[in-house]
C-alpha cells in the first residue's frame, strides 16, 4: 500500500490543515527538513481529477507555511499535505528544506528546543529541552569535540547538540544568548520530550526561565 513515503501521515491527516507544522513537528517547535520534498499523485481517477485539483489548490492556499509535499489519491482516499511551519520560534528559524537537501546525508535538520519553565536550576537559568524523543549527541561525531561545554558563551541559533530520531539528525539550537551552565543530558543518552538538555545563563537576565 503506502500512499506516503514517511509513514507519519497520521499527524498530517489529523491536523485538519489548520494546525501548525509539518509531520516531523513536535509542539510549537519547528523541526525543519526532516521530510523530503517531492510530489506524488497517486492513482487519480479521471472523473475525480477536477475535484481533486480544486481541493489541492484550496489546501495549498490555506497552509500556515510554504507547501513541502502534497499527495492525493481517491477511492481508498488520502489527501496528505506537508508544509513548512511558519517561523514558530522567535529566533533561529527552521532551515530551508532545499538547503537540507543540497548537502550530503545525514544532514542535521534544525530544531529549536522547547521553551522551558522557570526555576529548575535557579531563577537566572534558561533550560533548553528536547523537542522530540530520540538519542542526544553532544558532538557531531564521536571523533569531534562537543558543540558546547560548561562555561562556553553561546549565541542565539548556535548548535548545542543533536537529537537523532528515526535515523534523522535534528539539530538543537539555543534560543537565548548566554553562558552554558550545564550540559544536562549525557552523550548518546535516550531523551524524552521536554527533557532538559542544556542549561544556559542568559546574557539578558530577563530571558531566564
Amino acid at each position: 500500500m503506502s500512499t506516503n513515503g514517511t509513514g507519519t501521515n497520521g499527524t498530517t491527516t489529523s491536523s485538519g490543515g489548520t494546525s501548525s507544522g509539518g509531520t516531523s513537528t513536535i509542539g510549537a517547535v519547528g523541526v525543519g527538513g526532516a521530510v523530503e520534498v517531492h510530489h506524488e499523485v497517486l492513482e487519480v481517477r479521471q472523473d475525480a481529477l477536477s475535484e481533486l485539483a480544486e481541493q489541492a489548490v484550496a489546501l495549498s492556499r490555506s497552509l500556515a507555511g510554504p507547501l513541502r509535499r502534497i499527495a492525493l489519491s481517491r477511492g481508498e482516499v488520502t489527501v496528505e499535505v506537508d508544509w513548512q511551519e511558519a517561523a514558530a520560534a522567535p529566533v533561529a528559524p527552521a532551515a530551508p528544506v532545499a538547503a537540507v537537501h543540497a548537502a550530503a546525508a545525514p544532514v542535521p535538520a534544525t530544531a529549536v528546543a522547547a521553551p522551558a519553565e522557570a526555576g529548575e536550576a535557579g531563577a537566572a537559568t534558561h533550560t533548553v529541552r528536547a523537542p522530540l524523543v530520540g538519542t542526544f549527541y553532544t558532538s557531531p561525531s564521536p571523533e569531534e569535540p562537543p558543540f558546547v561545554s560548561t562555561g562556553d558563551t553561546v549565541a542565539v541559533g548556535q548548535t548545542l547538540g543533536i537529537v537523532e530520531a528515526m535515523k534523522l539528525m535534528n539539530t538543537i539550537v539555543s534560543d537565548v544568548a548566554g553562558r552554558v551552565v550545564e550540559v544536562v543530558a549525557g552523550n548518546g543518552s535516550p531523551v524524552e520530550f521536554d527533557q532538559p538538555l542544556v542549561r544556559i545563563e542568559p546574557a539578558d537576565a530577563a530571558l531566564a526561565g
Partner: peptide, 14 residues
C-alpha cells in the same frame, strides 16, 4: 494528541 498520541516518530523512538 496530534503532537503526542498521534506522533508516530516519537512513539517508535520510545
Amino acid at each position: 494528541s496530534r503532537f503526542s498520541y498521534l506522533n508516530i516518530p516519537n512513539i517508535i523512538e520510545a
